[in-house]
Structures are given as structure tokens and as C-alpha cells.
Design a protein around this nucleic acid. Sequence first.
DNA 1: CCTCCACCGGAAAAGATGGATC
DNA 2: GATCCATCTTTTCCGGTGGAGG
Length: 419
Amino acid sequence: MEKDGSQDIAAEIFAQEDPIFRNKSLVEVEHVPSPERIVGRDDEIRALSTELRSAVNGDSPENVILYGETGTGKSLVAKHVAKAAKSNAGDVRIGTVYVDCSTDDTETQAISSIARTLNDEAVTDIRVPETGLAKAAYYTRLYAILDQQYDVVITILDEADMHPDDQILMSLSRAVETGKTDCRIGLIAISNKVRWAEDLNDRVKSSLQPRELNFHSYDANQLRAILSHRRDAFREGVLSDDVIPLCAAYAAQDHGDARQAIDVLRNAGMLAQRDGSDVVTRDHVEDAKMEAEKDRFRDLIGGLTVQKKLVLSAVTALHKGTDDDEFSMAQIIETYTKLCEATGTSTRSDRRVRDFVRRLAFLDILELRKQNLGRAGGITIYARLQPDHDLDIVHQTAMDDEQFVVTDSEAENASLDSF
DNA sequence: CCTCCACCGGAAAAGATGGATC
DNA sequence: GATCCATCTTTTCCGGTGGAGG
């Protein structure tokens, strides 16, 4: 390879004007639109602002639970309103924190994250390490920070249902009454499970006394408006007329997920770019939607641990090696054990494998059926691959890992021997 | 109708990991 | 370097389940 030549090629490509995108960041996931571009959520913004109103006077804001499907603007509205509260606060020192509970999915991690976001080390002279402290130590430091820096803090807990227990809600909502801090704390808990708010146990509910706010899904018109606001991401004339309505329609069919609509729009643009086309067409949108679904699934399987992949491989091997279309737990475990031997991987206990199978079912990769065989076998779980997944794709993806490679013949042997 | 088998799945304990602190 | 802490993974233990077979 000639160095000069390849450098020229690279330089040439970098120097080219992007034929499709003018400002791609507008269709990136993280992009937060400016307030006037938030579409169709006026009622929600008004309602949430009302609940938080007392914050700007230095009094306790109400605690609020926001729920609704993914991509209905819950986080967006929460962030927007919190920010607005802060900038309209006058002399009151308002702090705002945003915690993504799917990342910080334990109480300690969340508290640590909150403390580190709010902390200005120059002011408080308090250090907050990421991990390693006892839970109580994080709380102590957090309260010290609150007292020194803030009158009111608005805490947004996104994906709050990801926390196994709701201790964090309890602790934070009761911090003032138990005398831990003088700082007022307003919680905004966001969940996309409607039932979550109902399931909150009574103790939590009575100390939170939350207001509930339901975010309904976007309809096709609103989605179209949302996407239209972002069409500046593309160059003039690049989007043919039916592209935005089509993206909107796809997302509306699902459950009105704005994020999904934007993703499809972006990917359609990127596909057009790859084709060397200078317009985004209907076909690009359709391909983008297909790609998005496949990628999501490939990522899902690719992200599984070695052990889970082996269990999944066992199921796909059974599908390929036999005529049956569902398999008992005993069969799966036996095949799994053989695959482990073939690949030199250590096996896990049966109980553990049962967990893996259930986990795969939870991810909608496997489908389970429970049957009681009476004295002949007691309760037995039967599993099979979700019918709408392509067996070959799953099989190949599952058997390919840096840690091990299962050859087809090994898989076949393992599945055949299990009778 | 009643029993009883063998698997399921909850709970607790044990191990492993990674970081902070003194 | 020893000790503590939180969390994740895995194992061990065991009571519950519910229909086939008596």
C-alpha cells in the first residue's frame, strides 16, 4: 500500500462537502432541542412547572412521577423545566441533577453520581469518590454538599424503575424531615412502566406523596412536526417529500417513540450517504428501518456473556440437529454441557443455567412454556427460539465469540447425543 | 379423588471483583 | 498492605407445584 496514495484518498474524502447532512448533530440522539422546538408537550410542561413552582421561592417543590412510553419526551420535559426553574430562581440557590438509573442502577451509584454532579469541590472542599465508600458515607457527603451550596435541589431520576428497591426515593424524600439537611429536595422520578407508580410500596408513597403525570404517546402528526423541526440537519432539497411522513408513520405504528423516528431518519441519511446518493428516498427509509431492527438484535446477542451465548447456542444447535421445535430444560443443559466441553469452557450449575434460560426469555430471544408432567417429570420448562428470529443469524451470532468458537460439527454432535 | 414425583425457582450464603481508606 | 464496602456472579439448600398414575 502506498502511503502517499492512501493519504490523498483520505484527505480527499475529508475535504469533501457532506452531500447529505448540513448539521448532523440535530438528528443525534443526545441532541436536546431548544425550548421552542419541543412539540406537543405544552400541557405536560405546564403541569410539571406548576408542581415545581415553589422551588423558585425557596420552598419545597412537589415530588412528581412521570410515566409514559419510551420516547414520549419525559426526560426532555423534565430537563427543560428543571433548567427553567433554575434560571428563574433569583436569589434562591437551585441545583439540578439528572441521574440515569439504568446506568447508575444501585442506590449507592445513584447517590454517588448525584453528589459528584452537585459538588463544587472548590466551594465545599469535599471529595466524592466514584466507588469504594459505604452507602451511608455517600449520603453524609451529599447532605454536607447540599447544605453548603444549595437552598433547593431538583433531582431527576430517569428510568427510576430500574432500581430494585426504592430506598433512594425514601431517603431523599425524608432527608429534610429527619434533619439530615436543610436543603429542600424535589424528586422527579421517570418511568416508562405505568404500573411502577402503582407498585411503589405504601411506605414510599406516604413519604413521597407524589403527583403523577402521564405522558401520552406522540401521534403521527406530532412526530411529523418533531422531525420537521430537525430537517435542518439535512441540506436543502436532500429530503424528498415523503421521507419525513414515512419516518413518522413508522414510529407512530409502533408506540409513538420520537427517538425511534429520529434514529430512522438519521440512518436513512447515512444510508443515502453510503450509496453516494445526494437525495434521501423512500427506499433509504425502509432500509434504515430494517437495519435498525437487525442491528438491535445483533447487538443484543453480541452483548451476552459467554455463558449465555453457550446456552443460546445449545438451543439453536438443538433446533438444527433435531426435528423438534421445543426442548426441555434437561436437553438444553445436556447440550450446553457438551458445548462447554467442546470449547473448553467451564460449566455452571444447573440452577444457574436455568437462570440463563429465563434471562434469554426475558430478552425475548427464547420463548418458554411450562408444563407439569406429573409423576413422570414434575414441572418442566420447554424452550424454543422466538419464531420471528432467523435461526441462522442467531446461531451464527451466538456461536461466535472471542472466547470460543463452536464449529458446526461440534454443535451437531452435541445436539445429536442428547437422546 | 388423592398421592407423589421430580423439576422449578426463591432465598441465603459464599466467592469474586474492584475501589477507597488509613 | 490490611481492611472495609458495594455489587455481581455462582452455588447450595429446600419448600412449592400440579398433573399422571394409582
